[in-house]
Design a protein around this nucleic acid. Sequence first.
DNA 1: ATAATAGTGTCTTTTAGACAATATGTA
DNA 2: TACATATTGTCTAAAAGACACTATTAT
Lengths: 254, 254
Amino acid sequence: MTDPSDSPARRTAYAARVKDIERPLVTVDVVIFTLIADALQVLLVQRPSGAREPFPGQWALPGGFVDVAHDEDLRACALRKLRDKTAVESPYLEQLGSWGGRTRDPRGWSVTQVYFALLPWASLQPRKGSNAADVRWFPVDAANAAQTADGLAFDHGLILAAAVERLRSKVEYTSLPAFLLTEPFTLPQLQQVYEIVLRRPLDKSAFRTRALAAPDFLEEAGLQATGAPRAPMGYRLVKHLQPVTFPRTFQSRG
Amino acid sequence: MTDPSDSPARRTAYAARVKDIERPLVTVDVVIFTLIADALQVLLVQRPSGAREPFPGQWALPGGFVDVAHDEDLRACALRKLRDKTAVESPYLEQLGSWGGRTRDPRGWSVTQVYFALLPWASLQPRKGSNAADVRWFPVDAANAAQTADGLAFDHGLILAAAVERLRSKVEYTSLPAFLLTEPFTLPQLQQVYEIVLRRPLDKSAFRTRALAAPDFLEEAGLQATGAPRAPMGYRLVKHLQPVTFPRTFQSRG
DNA sequence: ATAATAGTGTCTTTTAGACAATATGTA
DNA sequence: TACATATTGTCTAAAAGACACTATTAT
């Protein structure tokens, strides 16, 4: 936060001008993932269609300006935007990164802080019907293909691609997919989520060994009646805030 | 602020609407690591001592306001600030994260985008003497102990701790420490850097096997005269922009 | 009983850890 | 030659991949 210049005089002048420095626009956007119909999906919102709006009518990540009066910090701002769209209070939420520059928003030099959230689809069923018009779930493959090609608003196509890449890469060695399921869940269900996100089959035996051997990951929650011939064991997360890290990445193709 | 493709009318319309929004302060800070005297060190700058300055005279991470007129994007801004302090042009530079909120800067709601850089100490020897008064290297252990206790300016103590944690964690499974060495370097040198950052000894044989087996990591650069009885092989990085990721983390104590 | 899904066991492969042994150059 | 450092080899251990096998229950 220092003025890089060398002279004390210039420094004082700089400090005095702080209020007058032209400030970039600051927004927070959220990449919200869930699992619907055995597919990874992302929540997008349609931009207002007013002629003065940037990217009118185009799909974009949910987000918007930081509200200096009401947002305590960046994370609170992200949670507020997530709550606005999904009515979910405590999802898994992590910082993805920042995108900032002169040309990404026609209204001026702007910075967006992007968070990404994982939540179980069931958790937001109730709110679903309310505002379905300009808020929709898109399968990420379609989103990456069609939407990014068509072009999401701003640089959101790039951001979404980065979020998907980060998710896929972390799924190789963490328990992130567990945040996409409601508890209790079974190991076959969990494995299926891994396979959906990674887009490749995993070996059943190795998967189970790894999952059950991980410290502070799963605790038993009784047999589940899923309709399967043999009732599978249900599990809950020991820790709901942080994912578990495995000592190696997955390697097989099952 | 201006988009040449926009009509003047449209531009003013945007500006009028968007100007009503109170904008946070936007800064970029850089955590610059290097290796001096077998110790990991971080570059800190002393804040100006003017009475109107926040945290006068305290040590802080190098950084400052985004210059909307001159910075093309966030990364360019980070590179500029790094260049100002070290005269280094192309270091390893990655985004660490953002810290933003109402209370972190007494001048108002502020957001900082933090990058972290790794560079070899030798690369900046020439510039060293110039402005040594208010710019200094601090060993990270001392920095974390003394400085964080004393308190760096703003929330920079927290940010530095996060940067060190990120570095240590990524060193477990990536080739990041190679960016702290000048090329060509030898495998014993590289192993020593790992041991310094991780603060534990590693097994020689396992280390060599892993390093040499990693694809697109090292290429031979001829035997080096380091003064050692037996001349070790020198190596260069195949890729200078991205670190290599190993399939497992280190585990031993050598 | 059969089918379908859940869960286990066994063998192999891979990579790392421990540590001994060998190689090579300097004093 | 003695010594210090670089490099390689050997054995063991840990965890995953492949895949066959057993367990349980709805029909």
